[in-house]
Design a protein around this nucleic acid. Sequence first.
DNA 1: CCTTGACCTTCCTACGATGGGAAGCCCCAC
DNA 2: GTGGGGCTTCCCATCGTAGGAAGGTCAAGG
Lengths: 149, 149
Amino acid sequence: MSGAVTIGVAAKATGVSAKMIRYYEETGLLPPADRTASGYRLYGEEDLHTLRFVRRARDLGFSVEDIAGLLALWQDRGRASAQVKALALHHVADLRRRIAELEAMARTLASLADHCSGDSRPDCPILDDLAADHAPDPRWPHRVKPLSR
Amino acid sequence: MSGAVTIGVAAKATGVSAKMIRYYEETGLLPPADRTASGYRLYGEEDLHTLRFVRRARDLGFSVEDIAGLLALWQDRGRASAQVKALALHHVADLRRRIAELEAMARTLASLADHCSGDSRPDCPILDDLAADHAPDPRWPHRVKPLSR
DNA sequence: CCTTGACCTTCCTACGATGGGAAGCCCCAC
DNA sequence: GTGGGGCTTCCCATCGTAGGAAGGTCAAGG
């Protein structure tokens, strides 16, 4: 029943650093914490719960802005789960898009590295690729450079 | 043989914005460009080649710091391709690590969303998961909170 | 009662890569 | 010579996080 703890304890208990707790408060993600007479922030069990919620959401890659939405829905007992699901699926789509981008990079680079002898000789397909003329604009129909000269 | 072009032309020709070209120069990735009498930066064919190299490397996800290394190797005719390959493979490993992280998030979230009805009712496994007690420190052996009180 | 050390407060700085914008100079075409 | 577009530098913002300085607070132990 003691309840209220200071920011350092709250940080350790929730895995959110004290710095970030202050930042979240400052940016409005969290409401201003209660204070002791001397100005120390105090966190009760419910606040800790909220902080853990925020941390979990961050761990799942949600932006702070998205988390504000999730928190609002969480605290709205009359919410429609459809709203939550939409937010989540939107985020999943975002994650998948970023994954696809990274995978394209990794594939390209791995394939280049695969063709590189990796010994003491200077010849290197990786550098050759980087130095080659890559079409800047057209997305995929990668126009091969004209052969005749 | 006109050769030298101003920064805006170089930007369009290479796909690197003028802002970024200045930034790269400022941070030492690129050597200071030649200037006209009135202070305009000038870029020759070789500079454009370098800029395209940088852009390609950025497109492959290399950090500016890594690109500095790649540029140095590129310009070192006596380099060992092993060095380039090592840099590339290190970066691939980094990409794969980030991909794995994002995939873990996406998988978790997609599975939660999958169990969410997504209708007008408020019940939502996604929020339930976010609100649940997730172990902060211990990696997986998820210690359940003590029952007795 | 006073010191000590751990904690808290605010405020400022930085990261990495990028974009936006303002104020002022430069250059070319008309 | 004028207008408009390009160039210069300088400052600010992003996003989430961390570090540090300067100073107040608190509890424990002498």
